[in-house]
Design a protein around this nucleic acid. Structure first.
Lengths: 330, 330
DNA sequence: TAGACGGACTAGAACGATCTAGGACCAAGG
DNA sequence: CCTTGGTCCTAGATCGTTCTAGTCCGTCTA
């Protein structure tokens, strides 16, 4: 067994560099008040010893961790894309991201508490399901940013995508291609599902078309079921609640010998990685995960550093046209 | 702006209950050495004040964080399943999981360092790509467990799945169904790809069959390309490197009007969530994410708590037969 | 009855950082 | 020659806990 060597502390570095702890502290956090020559000497000693500051001790004394907590759901691929982008943005603003997953037996509350225990100075929650009151209670402790959901507590920031605009883009695209018999397969009780249903109805009405909405859900199975239902009375185009549902729809249609997009166009929502796969090539409304993530991190940092009060950022999605939408058969 | 009120400390509780800090500490962590009557008095005072122990301070003093660092890749759905299970297992052994993703511009090194900064007492790395020397260097500081890869540094634990056994199960299954013309679509340079190729060759040989291995890769596109290649000289069954490749194969075969499994059987590997979807129903070799995750967490905890030396756990995968494998056409 | 023992409790030193107050030194100004 | 003001640096207090080494006091044992 190798001796588990103690992690070096400020004291060790100070000793090695021949200065006081306080000075090492000054150098390590880049504060003014150290001569350039000693600064180098200290940095060298620190590197030499492999010193890394102890987050807990630092937090205990200063209440700064430069840590932003991010809660996400491990089963949502779209969340993974946001996580990616959030890391990059946090990095460029000098913060670190602490991750906590909402998983099977692990509630959102649990995820958040663990982030707070780690000393997160702000919380970003992707599609939070907590009630407004609870969110507000956490907001008393640290700034909270809700991502992809905007009608949460009064004290919470939100960064969301304009669902109405997204659906409008989709409907305009399909109508522009010449479609008039368009159906929306809803998302059931999922977050944003209601907004998208209503947007679809209103946009179809604007075009003077009849809006048919059928039940669905957020998964592939839901799309598959919807395809079975639609077979008897086939529209020329379908706007799905999300990409997973769209994939189910396509799969279902194909099983009945229908071709996409020749017989029926299918439009997804999310522009997830699946949609981009070469054998899928799904046309989809993109919420642009990197932009959303960046905006959320920016809000968090602004709230931490300034005294900015809660704000609500809404981003407009855009359309990505691939190969599952085309003009209807003549 | 609301007044940020100071959080009550041990001192406050001690004062309210008329005892010393130390005694409150004893009561709060349920340690022996306090009379039942005072214990109640202290608990009442704590509840009254809404006292919650400060994790940072507590851990600073006891130099325990009860934190296990887990690095994963945000773009791998299979990793997400492991994350899920790891949370549960860590929880049941009294530890927390700190997550860190390897993402686009974020290297594995970076991910690990941030985990160490948070004070992780052990590291679990899923499919690590670092060299053995580097892994060993981290092992000097904390126990390191490599998950899904076993030929890493001398000082690291590993928990992996027996690839040879997995392929054997698959080949036995197909041969048992009556197949003899079986092809393996490889995983290129991906982790485990070589092991599976070799296992396939040796297992086919054991059955006295000719082993055909064609190039592939870990993605859907690779499967799609392989399908194109196989069309002219169709085998009766294909063993794919993983589920994603299998899905690409199926998609490709269908595009050519071939039915799965009537015309050709396809077997995946990983038993990912995709495989389980109702419209996919892919037969697959399951590495059983929950079991692997649990074993990795167990190794980590054992190393932290005991003085157990590095060990290598190998789990035997099992077969999940769904609807993409069937006897060959007569 | 003295000494040992053990249960209930406490004072004060850690833990590893930051912060405050101030010292040493040097150059410029009166 | 003494002050003033700036830069560079340090000692010591501090954050909220836990740990160590006691003290105190009643009871058991020889």
């Amino acid at each position: 067994m190798k001796e588990q060597q103690r992690r070096p502390t400020l004291m060790d570095v100070a000793h090695a560099a021949g200065v006081s702890r306080a000075l090492v502290s000054i150098v390590m956090r880049g504060a003014p008040g150290a001569a350039e020559s000693t600064r180098q000497k200290v940095l060298d000693a620190a590197r030499e010893l492999g010193y890394r500051p102890d987050t807990r001790a630092r937090l205990l004394r200063s209440s700064r961790t430069k840590l932003i907590g991010l809660s996400f759901s491990s089963s949502q691929p779209f969340h993974a894309e946001i996580v990616d982008a959030a890391y990059a943005q946090a990095n460029s603003r000098g913060y670190e991201i602490a991750l906590s997953a909402v998983a099977n037996g692990r509630t959102e509350t649990r995820a958040i508490e663990s982030l707070l225990d780690l000393g997160a100075e702000a919380l970003i929650m992707i599609s939070p399901t907590l009630g407004g009151d609870e969110m507000d209670r956490y907001s008393d402790q640290v700034p909270v940013v809700s991502l992809l959901r905007n009608n949460v507590g009064r004290l919470v920031d939100s960064v969301s995508s304009d669902d109405h605009a997204g659906i409008r883009l989709g409907v305009d695209h399909l109508v522009g291609l010449g479609h008039s018999k368009i159906v929306h397969v809803g998302g059931g009780t999922a977050v944003s599902a209601q907004e998208r249903r209503e947007a679809f109805r209103s946009e179809m009405q604007r075009h003077g078309l009849e809006a048919t909405v059928i039940q669905g859900g957020p998964g592939e199975e839901d799309g598959l079921r919807a395809a079975r239902f639609l077979r008897d009375n086939l529209p020329t185009a379908v706007v799905a609640f999300n990409d997973r549902s769209a994939l189910g729809l396509i799969e279902g249609f194909r099983a009945y010998g229908l071709r996409v997009p020749a017989d029926v166009s299918v439009l997804g929502y999310d522009d997830s990685q699946m949609a981009r796969l070469s054998y899928v090539q799904l046309s989809s409304v993109s919420q642009d995960a990197p932009l959303l993530a960046a905006a959320a991190v920016d809000r968090a940092v602004d709230r931490i550093e300034g005294t900015a009060s809660p704000a609500h950022v809404v981003r407009t999605p855009h359309l990505v046209i691939r190969k599952t939408t085309a003009p209807p058969a003549a």
